[in-house]
Each structure stands twice: as structure tokens, then as C-alpha cells.
Design a protein around this nucleic acid. Structure first.
Lengths: 148, 148
DNA sequence: GCTTGACCTCCAGCTTGGTCGAGGTTGAAG
DNA sequence: CTTCAACCTCGACCAAGCTGGAGGTCAAGC
């Protein structure tokens, strides 16, 4: 069992954030007789997962909901992971896709002669994300007349 | 020239957010004699760009810094885009990579028989650090978009 | 058994990315 | 010329995701 300080050091996640995550239900701990937190080593795995997910733009709530599908008290089974995976895969795929388009649009624009943006991919971004992600309000299909 | 209401409708970005973005220097407008905002059509392109970038976890500041490289008052040239592209590509690549790892970790776990997590990729996220002894290196210091 | 640093709770405050409403102005249609 | 939706500014407020401090407790070393 690890103390909060040990977890903080090993994971690089500040102890303040660890308490915050616990408060939000992303991680759990048990308490000593003296009311101090003690963590299973598996919390490090969760934390790595949380931080990675956050870095790519998922909210703590997204992560919490996903992790809620995993058992706290036992090693996740194959079907535990399957469920988590299924529920996340399409979201992750969508994000990967969005990133690709964002990147390729940039580099693509160089090739496509953006001096006249008329036929440029960037032009057409607006219609793609019609309904995505809770955090990001949507861009409606814009009526791109002719002049840009 | 478009009014703020027209831009809001076409882009799907609320007018409140439009003023907010202008305040933060992400978009610009000109004013009528009566002090009302008028936008170039190109603002729609910027907005689509902003929303996409946000969706994949970049901050408004990241976006602002990137867009600051593009001219406000003329169509971006090839070299404008080249500069923007260069400065973003590695960041986007890193995020794509992170997403892949996150996704593949999930699906990988299904294949690898996570009933025993021993050899699982997820397992090794933290063990790498743990096994580096007492002064263990940290997880990625987390979130924020500083490296853009 | 005393010290000291790591721990506890609670709460205020910060940043980001906005929304909402009050109170006033503009501008195009009738 | 009136009307009224759409616009303006400004400041309060919101939620997420934290940080930091105050004031108190625990536990390991001397």
C-alpha cells in the first residue's frame, strides 16, 4: 500500500490533485486507523490513464464514467476491458480522425495552393463536426456561398 | 460583411462566444458607424479551425498564437500556412500518438488476456517508473497546452 | 515522550472558457 | 417617424480543474 506522498511522487500527480480525483470518484483509497489514505499500486495505472485521457481532451467526467466500469477491488477481467473499450473506441477514433484532419488540412493547404482558398479543405471544415462531444458546441453546416 | 448574428447562425458559435473570442484576440471585426461588428466571411474559416482545435484539447491560447501567424486582412499565403503548419505539426502528431496509445491500450488489453494483467501494456505504464527506483521519474506533468 | 514532516479537512481562490442579464443604441422595415 | 429585433458594453456568475493556506492530527525517529 502506498501513501499519498508516494503516489504523488511516482505518478507525478500532485497530492492536491489526488484528493481532488478521489473526491470526484476517479480513484479510491482505503484509510488507516489514523485516517490516512493508502493506495493500491493499481492506482498508478489509473492515474496514467487519467492523465493521458485528459491530455487528449477528455474530461474528468468522461474518464470517471469509463473507469466506473472497471472494478475497484479486483483485477479487471477481459470483459471489463471489453466494455470500457467498446464505449470509448468510437470516441477516440473520432478524436484521432479530427486531429488527422486538422493536421492534414494544414499541410494539405501548403500543397493545394492556398493562395486561392476556394477549393481548400480548410474551407470545408465547418460541416464536419455537426454533433460531437459534450464539451464542444457544434458548428452547423455553414452556407458557404462563394466568396471567401 | 456579416453581422454577429449571421456569423453565429452560420458557424453555430453563440454570439457571446464570438465576442469572447474577439476579446481574446482569436478573431477580429470592423465596426459600423453605429459601433456594430461586421465580419469578413473568412471568420467562418477561423471559427471552424478554432472549434476543431478546441475539440482535440488545444487551448484558446494555443489557437490564438497559431492564428496570430495568419494575416487578418488578407488571404493567407502559402508561406503563412507553412509557418502555421510547422509550428503545429509536432504538437498534433504528439496528440495523435497519445490517442493511439490510449486506444490501443484498451483494445490491446482485450487481445492480451487481461485476466492476468501481467504482460499487459496498461500494466507497464506505471511499472516503468516504479522500477526506476526511489527517485522515480514522473508521468507526463499532465494537461495544459504549453508546448504548442 | 517529543519533535517533525507527512498527513488530514475545509474552504477560499485561480484560470479557462464561457453564459446571462441589465440598461442602452442601432438600423431596417412599415 | 416609429418600432423593435438585433446590436452594444459591462459586470456578475457558472463549471471544470485545480492550488494553497489555515488549523489540526498521525507516526516514525531520536
Amino acid at each position: 500500500m502506498l501513501t499519498i506522498g508516494q503516489v504523488a511522487e511516482r505518478s507525478g500527480v500532485p497530492h492536491t490533485a489526488l484528493r481532488f480525483y478521489e473526491d470526484r470518484g476517479l480513484i479510491t483509497s482505503v484509510r488507516t486507523a489514523g485516517n490516512q489514505r493508502r493506495y493500491l499500486r493499481s492506482v498508478l495505472r489509473r492515474l496514467a490513464f487519467i492523465r493521458t485521457a485528459q491530455r487528449v481532451g477528455l474530461t474528468l467526467e468522461d474518464v470517471r464514467d469509463a473507469l466506473a466500469q472497471l472494478p475497484d477491488n479486483r483485477t479487471p477481467t477481459k470483459s471489463d476491458w471489453e466494455r470500457l473499450s467498446r464505449s470509448w473506441k468510437s470516441e477516440l477514433d473520432a478524436r484521432i480522425d479530427a486531429l488527422y484532419r486538422l493536421r492534414d488540412r494544414l499541410t494539405g493547404c501548403i500543397g493545394c495552393g492556398c493562395l486561392s482558398l476556394r477549393s481548400c479543405a480548410l474551407q470545408n471544415i465547418d460541416d464536419e463536426q455537426a454533433s460531437h462531444g459534450p464539451g464542444a458546441p457544434k458548428l452547423k453546416p455553414a452556407v458557404e456561398g462563394g466568396t471567401a
